[in-house]
Design a protein around this nucleic acid. Structure first.
Length: 596
RNA sequence: CGGGGUGUGGCCCAGCUUGGCAGGGCGCCUGGUUCGGGACCAGGAGGUCGGCGGUUCAAAUCCGCCCACCCCGACCA
């Protein structure tokens, strides 16, 4: 029975619907009327701070019995909407046009682009009652290209920049980390269509700058890094990485010149190869790993060139064994290897698939295997390699002289301390959450799907395309990953579900005064365009403070015992101490925190 | 997909080894006392112990199969 609302005769469902500065109706919401199920303890499956806090603070819930499907509760939905609003503003500002595309897409469209066969198991495939095949869109290149190709005929209608913000689907083998890797997620995808590469380059740069503004406004420490363009194809590509230890991606940064790249793309600077000498056989009984071989021969691991074998699968279904040859102290960059041989998929080869003994394998006299050699190994020198004979290695093996290096690629994964490929200073490796990517598609899709236009000379030419994504739900999680403390979330003002928390404490006369004051301040804030969340629940002060910190609105105004002196407490979520201010001064102080 | 783990009320967990009345904390409901950092007292509601089958006088507990979820790896816009 008697919550404070009833006790003090406050009307339930009170809404302040004055129009605020930002154009929407600022409102004063009552906590007692909202579905904000906070939890004292986090569910056992939540590991990352973002996942744990979003669940505990009542922003998201996992759908029962599923992995990778989340409901956004009212608070989560509000944050999502605010992130989307920032994205819309910035994209509309550079001429972007929002549209909506179907989630369900016909297989035929994907067959025309060639990706039905290529996309793999992550694509969620389904059939209707007529057994027509479809997929749940993991992305929308095919649909948008077919759409624009059908409607745009003339160079006069180009360029076009279209975007959509919608649910996308990927049947992840292993969903995890809450919203960071779910099977259903919200993504902003944008596509641009141009007469030529130069026009695309101009658009790419504009979107790139818009992305920088978007992430800055949202409050993410986010770095654009050079990226591999992956399965989608194309050349120019940058990823926007929110730096966070929880990130799944790794990037290397150069403090000296600003070079930044995904490790999938980064090329480590070359080191001096081991000195050239005559090739010689040596017995290495029992030595199989790089460590064993190098210590048996008294050389450093970096002087050993290791051979790694993979079974490569190509787009046409053909398979072959590929060997990667790289320095023994290096981790293989699988993306580079895949790019170098043009394979769709690489799976470590099982011993049965390779004729040579895996612990003593090497490039000299290797047959029936496609060899890809790392740049550093290919640069010369005398390397230790396996002799393709159990227990025997070769020393002083020189590429070109003693074996044909085949294709040469940057197979070594860059790491902290490597030389920056631009300026030679030391690189630093950091982890990041990929929240956005921009890349060029060239004419890959337009050519396949017939998206052509007639130029001024009447020639039919395929449009040049660009593609620009932002993971919206993932960005939401990334913000929490970067903005939280031991007590809860600390939302940046631009994306907070409400700008300000109003906390009334006290009972009896004091409580009544608090309610009256909170409503007055709430109204003034609404007039100023600030949404507020009033904790009007019949809870003890401690509970309200804990929940306020957990939910993490940027400012909290407390109406309590200081009211006797006409004062309220204004505390930024990130501040350690509150300010005591006269009631009248509270709205301005709140606004000051929100604008900081 | 390989390896490991967990399923007991809305949440966190004990009980399982060694079979014998289904428990605790938090949350929820009622009454009372409290009221500035997750209060206290009293009373109460809520559970096919993931599912199916087996062993047994008796199964949350032992056995088999299945399902779901989590972690590590592999994989990845």
């Amino acid at each position: 029975m008697g919550g404070q609302g009833r006790l003090f005769g406050v009307r339930r469902g009170y809404r302040c619907d004055r129009r605020g500065r930002e154009g929407w109706m600022a409102m004063m919401a009552q906590m007692s009327r909202l579905l904000v199920p906070t939890l004292r303890e986090a569910p056992a499956d939540a590991e990352l701070a973002s996942h744990r806090l979003l669940v505990r603070a009542g922003f998201i819930r996992r759908v029962d019995q599923t992995s990778g499907f989340y409901s956004l509760l009212p608070l989560g939905q509000r944050v999502k909407a605010r992130i989307e609003a920032v994205i819309r503003q910035e994209l509309d500002g550079i001429g972007g046009q929002e549209c909506q595309l179907p989630i369900v897409q016909p297989a035929s469209l994907w067959e025309r682009s060639g990706r039905w066969a290529v996309y793999g198991q992550e694509m969620w495939r389904l059939a209707d009652r007529h057994e027509h095949r479809y997929c749940l869109g993991p992305t929308h290149e095919e649909v948008i290209t077919a759409l624009v190709g059908g409607e745009v005929r003339s160079w006069r209608q180009l360029p076009q920049l279209l975007y959509q913000i919608q649910n996308k689907y990927r049947d992840e083998q292993r969903p995890r980390f809450g919203l960071l890797r779910s099977r259903e997620f919200v993504m902003k995808d944008g596509y641009s269509f141009h007469t030529d590469e130069a026009d695309f380059d101009r658009c790419y740069a504009e979107v790139y700058r818009a992305y920088e503004r978007i992430f800055r406004r949202i409050g993410l420490d986010c770095r654009p890094v050079q990226a591999d363009s992956g399965a989608i194809g194309g050349s120019l590509s940058h990823e926007f990485m929110a730096l966070a230890d929880a990130g799944e991606a790794e990037v290397v940064l150069c403090n000296a010149c600003g070079y930044a790249a995904d490790v999938e793309r980064a090329e480590a600077g070359l080191r001096q190869p081991p000195p050239v000498r005559a090739m010689q056989r040596v017995a290495t009984p029992g030595a199989r790993s790089v460590e064993e071989v190098s210590s048996a021969l008294g050389v450093v691991p970096a002087a050993v060139a290791k051979s790694l074998f993979f079974r490569a699968t190509y787009a046409d279904g053909r398979q072959e064994v590929v060997a990667a040859l790289l320095p023994g102290d290096r981790t293989l960059n699988e993306v580079q290897l895949r790019n170098a041989c043009g394979a769709l998929e690489l799976v470590p080869a099982s011993p049965g698939e390779v004729e040579v003994p895996l612990g003593s394998a090497g490039p000299v006299g290797l047959r029936g295997v496609r060899l890809v050699t790392d740049r550093e190994v290919a640069s010369g020198g005398g390397w230790v390699v396996g002799a393709n004979e159990e227990g025997v290695h070769l020393v002083g093996v020189c590429p070109g002289r003693d074996f044909d290096p085949g294709a040469v690629a940057a197979l070594a994964t860059a790491r902290t301390g490597d030389a920056c490929p631009e300026c030679g200073a030391a690189l630093r490796a950091r982890r990041g959450i990929e929240v956005g990517q921009v890349f060029g598609l060239g004419t890959k899709y337009s050519a396949a799907l017939g998206a052509t236009y007639l130029d001024a000379a009447g020639q039919e030419i395929p449009m040049v395309m660009g593609c620009y994504g932002i993971g919206v739900t993932r960005t939401l999680a990334a913000v929490v990953e970067q903005h939280h403390d031991g007590d809860g979330i600390r939302w940046p003002a631009a994306v907070a579900p409400y700008g300000c928390a109003l906390v009334t404490v006290g009972v009896g006369e004091q409580g009544a005064q608090a309610v009256e004051a909170a409503q007055a301040v709430g109204r003034r804030l609404a007039d100023a365009g600030v949404d507020t969340l009033w904790d009007d629940r019949d809870e003890r002060p401690g509970v309200k403070f804990k929940d306020a910190d957990l939910i993490g609105l940027p400012v909290r105004v407390t109406f309590g015992r200081a009211l006797e002196r006409g004062l309220v407490e204004v505390k930024a979520r990130t501040a350690s101490e509150p300010q005591l201010l006269p009631l009248d001064a509270a709205p301005a102080a709140v606004a000051a925190v929100l604008q900081a």
